[in-house]
C-alpha cells in the first residue's frame, strides 16, 4: 500500500508539469495579449495610446518574449522562489490575489460539500429502502428537477422568491453595512443567513445527483445474493442496510469525491457571479477574459493539482473501503 502511494506521488510531478505546459500554451493561444485587451478597453473610453506607450507596456510585462520563454520563466519563478507571477488586472502578485478569496471560497465550498453528503446519503438510503413509495417518488421528482435545473436559474428564482417574501435583497455574502464597518461578531447571524441561499442553490444539483447514485447503488446491492445470505443468517434489516448494502454502495460515491477538493478551492463560477459571491470562480473567468495569463494559469494549475490529489485520495479511500481493490494493488 505504501509503495503504491509512493509510486502515485512520483507520477504526480511529471503529470503536473505536463498539465502546466498545456495550460500555458492554451491560455496564450488567443491572438493578442493582456496589453492588447487593456489598450482596447481603455481606448473605448477615449484614452489615446501611442505605439511607444504600447511597446513600453509590453516590454515592462515581458510579453515580447516567445511564449515558451515566458512559460520557462514562470515555472522557474514558481519552483525557485514560489513566485506565481504578476497579475496585470490587479497590479500585484498572483498569490496575494488568490489568497484574498481563498478562505472564504474554502469555507463556503466546504459547507456546501458537507451539506450535499449530509442530505443525499440518508435520502438515497431512504429511497432505496422504500422503493416506489410516495416518499421515493417525491424525492426522485425533486432529484430530477434539481439535476435538470441550471444553478444560475435556480439562483435567480430563489433570490426573487426571497425578495418577494422578505422585501430584502440578499446579494452576496456581505451586506453594505458589513463592508463599511468591517466584520465583527454581531454580523455573524446575518452572514450565516446570507450563506443559506448559495448553500441551497449550489448544493442542490450535487445533492440530487448523489441521491440518484446512492439509491441506484443501494438497490443493486440489495438485490445481490449476499443480502439474502445475511437475512437467512438472522441479521436485522438495519445490519443488512448499513453493514452490507451501504458499504458496497459507497464505491462510486467515494470515487465521485475526487473532484471535491477542486470544488472546495474554486467554488462555482456562473452561480457565484449571479449571486455576487466573492469566491474564486469569477476571478478565473475575469482573468481569462482579459488575458491576465499568470493569474489564470496559476488558478487552473492549482485546480489541476487539486484534481490529481483528489483522485489519489479517493483511490486510497477506495482501497481502504474495498478489500478487492486493496489486494489487486498489492499484486
Amino acid at each position: 500500500m505504501l509503495r503504491y502511494i509512493g509510486k502515485r506521488l512520483l507520477l504526480f510531478i511529471p503529470t503536473i508539469l505536463i498539465i502546466s505546459f498545456v495550460i500555458f500554451f492554451v491560455i496564450q493561444l488567443p491572438p493578442g495579449d493582456y496589453v492588447t485587451s487593456y489598450v482596447a478597453s481603455l481606448s473605448a473610453q477615449g484614452e489615446v495610446f501611442t505605439p511607444e506607450d504600447i511597446a513600453y507596456l509590453r516590454d515592462s510585462f515581458g510579453l515580447d518574449d516567445p511564449w515558451y520563454v515566458q512559460y520557462f520563466n514562470w515555472i522557474k519563478g514558481i519552483i525557485t522562489e514560489g513566485d506565481f507571477g504578476y497579475s496585470f488586472n490587479y497590479g500585484r502578485s498572483v498569490w496575494s490575489v488568490i489568497m484574498d478569496r481563498l478562505y472564504l471560497t474554502m469555507g463556503v465550498s466546504f459547507v456546501i460539500l458537507i451539506f450535499q453528503y449530509a442530505v443525499s446519503l440518508p435520502v438515497g438510503i431512504y429511497c432505496a429502502n422504500h422503493q416506489y413509495s410516495a416518499g421515493d417518488y417525491i424525492w426522485s421528482f425533486i432529484g430530477f428537477l434539481g439535476t435538470a435545473t441550471p444553478n444560475f436559474l435556480l439562483a435567480i428564482l430563489v433570490m426573487f422568491w426571497v425578495y418577494k417574501a422578505t422585501g430584502q435583497v440578499y446579494l452576496g455574502l456581505f451586506s453594505t453595512e458589513m463592508l463599511q464597518n468591517g466584520m465583527s461578531w454581531k454580523y455573524v447571524p446575518e452572514f450565516l443567513g446570507r450563506c443559506l441561499i448559495p448553500l441551497f442553490v449550489i448544493g442542490t444539483s450535487g445533492t440530487c445527483s448523489i441521491i440518484r447514485t446512492v439509491r441506484a447503488q443501494m438497490l443493486d446491492e440489495q438485490a445481490k445474493q449476499y443480502t439474502l445470505t445475511a437475512r437467512a443468517k438472522g441479521c436485522s434489516e438495519a445490519t443488512i442496510t448499513y453493514k452490507y448494502a451501504l458499504r458496497s454502495a459507497l464505491n462510486p460515491v467515494v470515487s465521485g469525491m475526487a473532484g471535491s477538493l477542486n470544488t472546495i478551492f474554486s467554488g462555482s463560477t456562473v452561480s457565484a457571479i449571479v449571486m455576487n459571491l466573492q469566491i474564486q470562480g469569477p476571478v478565473l473567468l475575469a482573468a481569462l477574459r482579459s488575458q491576465d495569463m499568470y493569474l489564470a494559469g496559476t488558478i487552473v494549475m492549482i485546480q489541476a493539482v487539486l484534481v490529481v490529489t483528489g483522485m489519489l485520495l479517493s483511490d486510497i479511500a477506495l482501497a481502504w473501503l474495498d478489500p478487492r481493490i486493496r489486494f489487486s494493488e498489492r499484486g
Partner: peptide
C-alpha cells in the same frame, strides 16, 4: 429462527458472501 434453528446454504457460494 433464521440462522439458528433453520439455516440455509445457497446455489452460488461465490456471490453468497459480501466481498467487503
Amino acid at each position: 429462527v433464521r440462522g439458528k434453528q433453520i439455516s440455509m446454504i445457497f446455489q452460488e457460494p461465490m456471490v453468497a458472501f459480501s466481498p467487503m
